[in-house]
Design a protein around this nucleic acid. Structure first.
Lengths: 152, 152
DNA sequence: GGACATTAAATGTATGTACATATATTTGCA
DNA sequence: TGCAAATATATGTACATACATTTAATGTCC
């Protein structure tokens, strides 16, 4: 399907100003990207947040991670890492064990099955462009600068 | 709180390339903006999707809207307009009535209470900048161009 | 040592998203 | 007419977010 301009996507013919247009465009485009990524993940039976946690765990491997560490590294700090780990544990992609040195904490580790799944997903994702490839390297860098400014 | 660069926000010191950095930055910034907006809405007892639907209904007022029309104009097409309207109805911000000319459809209208709430929120939002004001008008326009390219 | 705060994680509840399915109404066509 | 397809909305289920509360373990300070 041909991608449409933002005006057409949400049937809003005009915007108040360039700021409003950029704002709506930003939220819309982020949702568009997330939806595409979720679709790419679906055959593998994991959701985007689950995938993100698996990647953090692979980064730590073979060291364990705690829930706290997961939250620190997640894009969305307020999401519920505990329950996402629940789902991964029920699929045997991670293990959960009380940390011996601090029994309040929980050592979470990615399993061999989890590592295997991630490596399959790496291949699939390399073949499934994000949309960013439509930008030049300079444009991508420029985009990051603008985004940093928004939050700054 | 001082806003951090994306590298610090998610404790990832380096990115593979400008594309990966822009991608993560885009998703992160959109979440950041949504969270701020949700926080601004909280005192008014409505969520962001509820607010968006109220605004569409105000745009139609005094004509009714159907669920279909709401979905057409929403940023997120796959969200469940029916249930969001449920919540608004239970707060007496909208009314729902079977459409006389097509009894499959439902006429949804914003109530006086809904209009009043929106006008209060307009004032609050005017005082609560989105973050986009950190950009110049040219930068905002440039951002839209880059975002359109991503989806194109 | 013991009361109290702090920390780490889990749980509860309301809301929303994503997607499949169900229900009711209308349309179209043999 | 009558029956299948299309349309409009609602409902069911799994998952996630947002935020408050709970539970358990550890620190701290007197």
């Amino acid at each position: 399907m041909q991608v449409m301009k933002i005006e057409d996507e949400i049937k809003q013919p005009t915007f108040r100003d360039a700021y409003q247009k950029a704002y709506i465009n930003l939220l819309y485009t982020a949702g568009w990207l997330e939806q595409r990524q979720a679709a790419a993940f679906k055959p593998f039976g994991v959701t985007l947040p689950q995938f993100n946690i698996l990647r953090i765990l692979r980064g730590q491997h073979p060291k364990p991670a705690t829930v706290n560490l997961l939250i620190e590294r997640m894009l969305d700090k307020t999401s519920n890492a505990s329950r996402i780990v629940d789902k991964l544990e029920s699929k045997a992609l991670v293990t959960r064990k009380v940390c011996p040195s601090n029994r309040r904490a929980v050592d979470i580790r990615i399993t061999d099955a989890g590592l295997e799944l991630l490596s399959q997903m790496d291949v699939a994702m390399a073949q499934n462009p994000t949309g960013l490839q439509h930008l030049s390297e300079e444009e991508a860098a420029q985009l990051s600068v603008l985004l940093d400014k928004i939050r700054g």
